[in-house]
Simulated scan of single mutants.
Amino acid sequence: MNLRVAVVGGGTGGLCLAHGLVRAGVEVAVYERSRTRTERLQGYRVHIDPHGAAALHECLPPVAWQRFLAATGESAHEFAFVTEQLRELAVMREPAAADPAAAHHSVSRISLHQVLSTGLDGILWHDKEFVRYETGPKAVTLHFADGTTAEADLVIGADGASSHVRAQLLPHARRVDTGIVTIVGKTPVSEAAERFKAGPVYVVGPPGCGMFTAPHLFPEVAVNDETAEVDPVLFDNTGSYVMWAYGFRRLSTSDESLRDTALSAIRGWHPDLVRLVENSPDASVSRLPILTSLPVKPWEPGPVTLLGDAVHSMTPFRGIGANTALRDAQLLCRKLSAGDDVRVAVGEYEREMRKYGFKAVRTSARSAEQFVSESRLGRVATRGMFRALGAVAKLRG
């Protein structure tokens, strides 16, 4: 296909798209502002749902897909809802899918990035900080901070929630602070109670706050298919852990460490939850304000478009941001591979993407508000709802 595509941003969605376009025979270049492949390897576990798994399976070459599967942790099929005293409200169990491309997976964000970065020699360019683009009669020119330029027939902004491409294409698009803040940490799995290793746990706390935990259990070894040796690039160096997040709308500030702030907030909660926070190394604990994007009215399709958080960034609640970006990559790859006029293909992609993308934004924002609801009546109703769901699940089981 005689089409030159430039992807700005080497994150999950942009790299998945690049693999898909390469498989479709499309000329593509990815420009990433990090200086090296390993400069910004950080983050927590990522939940890949069936939408995300299907996109990865379709876009990645078989070797990369197998590397992804090798990098995933043990998948949990149990989701518990409990009170802050760990009284069970409901436990939802889902049978394991026979097809990995239709299954749920848990993967370190570091490992996922390493897998997606592999196999893109001559395509993925680091130390390329995007500054602006210019549209001409025959091509789009990209300008970078180092003074260099590049040309493409289509530019895709996949440069995250603070996208510079979006700022130029849709200057009116906005992200807003929800007023919710989370403190997030990792606890070595050996220091966590057994109940937190079985699967995600949603803690319906007192009004105004909530807590979420999720295990990431690394497989014991990853094997390189070509050498039959352990493949170290598939893993970060933290080992298996339980991730926890305490969310709140109002919390008194102090000179305490973030971990101590969280401990102060959950004083009186079940000892297993307190120990989960106590056993987190200080370096693993971070503060995360919760922002969300606002829906954008349809715009005229052109030689520049957006993907993932660059267009529909959402809160981390429900864990659907990365999966929506992967869905974008799969859809855009399909449209561009069909051989139709590029602007028609981009227009069709944007029309579908806006529909499911901003639906995901709304769903995520709603979950965030429920997580820290200050309504006592609403909190009682939420607990009652989960108890009813748990009772139904037990009857079905």
Score class of each variant (00 low, 15 high):
Glu226Met: 02
Pro100Gly: 05
Glu300Arg: 13
Asp153Gly: 15
Ser367Val: 08
Glu39Leu: 06
Ala360Cys: 07
Val30Tyr: 00
Leu15Ser: 06
Ala214Arg: 06
Gly397Ser: 12
Ile266Glu: 05
Ala381Arg: 06
Gly11Ile: 10
Asn323Val: 11
Cys209Ile: 13
Phe130His: 00
His270Lys: 08
Val26Lys: 05
Gln370Lys: 13
Arg354Asp: 04
Ala29Arg: 13
Ala54Ile: 03
Leu377Ile: 06
Ser286Val: 15
Asp328Cys: 09
Ser375Asn: 04
Leu154Val: 10
Glu151Phe: 00
Ala53Ile: 07
Gly11Asp: 08
Val184Arg: 14
Thr12Val: 15
Lys197Tyr: 00
Asp341Gly: 10
Leu263Met: 06
Ala76Ser: 15
Leu15Arg: 02
Val107Arg: 08
Ser373Cys: 10
Gly13Ile: 02
Ala345Glu: 01
Ala388Met: 11
Cys59Arg: 01
Thr382Met: 13
Pro303Ala: 04
Asp260Lys: 13
Pro281Phe: 05
Val8Ala: 04
Val5Phe: 04
Gly10Ile: 07
Tyr44Ile: 03
Gly122Ile: 01
Val5Asn: 05
Leu336Ala: 00
Cys333Tyr: 00
Val342Ser: 03
Asp341Ala: 14
Val63Lys: 12
Pro100Ile: 02
Leu251Pro: 04
Ile320Leu: 14
Ala193Lys: 09
Leu217Met: 15
Leu170Pro: 02
